[in-house]
């Protein structure tokens, strides 16, 4: 602040002594007041003031230059113009750099401060909200309360990422870990943010009373059921158990979200549209997470690359291999198959 202020003040005083000096000559004793005023301006603490001051100084400088141009002494005039321009340029640069730095630092701190209220929770609150996310409340006449908080949802998404990684490992999925990690993070955050925005958009169309923050919190806590189901079924490989949990736990958390949305929407068509979309997306996502990373990828990898490939599936590839003339297409086909396998791995 001090460094930016000093050249600005210097340029002002350096460029405009005609005016200042003239005024002071007339006013005499009043000069102290004027000087103090100047000092107050240049040591002002807000950048808006600085900007305004800077603008004003530039205007004054232009005036001063115009006045200086009328002087007779040509040689001295050139020197003076050069000095004025230099100091102005330096002041300009300093001011710009200072402003950029300050605004960057300010925006970083401001962002953290803006987010801080959403993380203002107690452990007991988080615990009760996690439990409540599994208990649907049948109250449709009055809008149900949604806590606008992001700590729980964010931690649940990270937990889901960890559980997905765990599941991929236990299922012995041979897959490149780098893409696997990226996929886990991308899937979870993509679902949370993407579906929240989509439902928010639908809610806007259906005239439901819900904000984006509430939607994020609602869907985030809805992922608690997913975490439980996936954590249990990745460790106990039983399809019947998974379907039971899928219907029971996943269904309960979905029902909770649906109940909240129903209470905040007016009109049967809108309710059906909004809640049907949300319920379908939420339940299918759980199904997808269980099977896509657990069974299907494994199956595809076995088919394409595994050592114990069933002979039935090799038939189309083996036929051209017997003909020497068709050697080249075979390799091409094999490469394509490999490419497909790689592409499937990464998804």
């Amino acid at each position: 602040m001090a460094t930016t202020a000093a050249p600005a003040g210097g340029s002002r005083n350096g460029a405009g002594p005609e005016w200042g000096g003239f005024e002071e000559n007339i006013q005499g004793g009043g000069s102290a007041v004027i000087d103090m005023e100047n000092m107050d301006d240049t040591s002002g603490s807000s950048f808006e003031d600085m900007g305004e001051l800077h603008q004003r100084l530039r205007e004054e400088e232009v005036d001063a230059d115009a006045a200086a141009a009328e002087e007779e002494d040509g040689e001295f005039l050139g020197m003076k113009g050069f000095k004025g321009q230099l100091s102005r340029q330096v002041a300009d640069q300093m001011w710009q750099a200072g402003k950029r730095q300050a605004s960057r630092a300010f925006s970083l701190y401001a962002n953290i401060d803006i987010l801080r209220p959403y993380f203002d929770v107690e452990p007991a609150q988080v615990r009760s909200r996690l439990l409540e996310s599994m208990i649907p409340i049948k109250m449709v006449n009055f809008p149900q309360k949604i806590a606008g908080e992001l700590y729980g949802p964010l931690m649940l998404v990270f937990t889901l990422v960890a559980i997905l990684l765990h599941g991929m490992k236990t299922s012995d999925t041979i897959i490149r870990e780098g893409t696997l990690m990226g996929t886990a993070i991308g899937t979870c955050f993509g679902y949370w943010l993407g579906v929240s925005s989509f439902i928010y958009f639908l809610a806007y169309l259906c005239n439901a009373q819900i904000t984006m923050l509430q939607m994020l919190a609602l869907l985030g806590y809805g992922l608690f059921g997913h975490c439980i189901v996936l954590f249990i079924t990745y460790n106990i490989h039983l399809h019947a158990l998974f379907y039971l949990f899928w219907l029971l736990v996943g269904g309960l958390s979905t029902l909770r979200m649906v109940a909240v949305l129903v209470s905040r929407t007016v009109g049967p068509t809108q309710r059906l549209l909004l809640c049907g979309t949300l319920a379908a997306l939420h339940m299918l996502f759980l199904l997808y997470l269980h099977f896509a990373y657990h069974k299907v990828v494994e199956g595809i990898l076995d088919t394409l690359e595994g050592p114990n490939v069933p002979p039935m599936q090799r038939v189309p590839r083996d036929i051209p291999a017997m003909l020497p003339a068709a050697r080249l297409p075979t390799t091409v086909l094999n490469t394509t198959a490999k490419a497909v396998a790689v592409a499937l791995q990464s998804h």
Binding site: A6, G9, G10, N13, G14, P17, K83, S87
Partner: peptide, 9 residues
């Protein structure tokens, strides 16, 4: 003016 520029600070 050239010499005066740092001075009035």
């Amino acid at each position: 003016r050239g010499r005066a520029s740092p001075r009035p600070l």
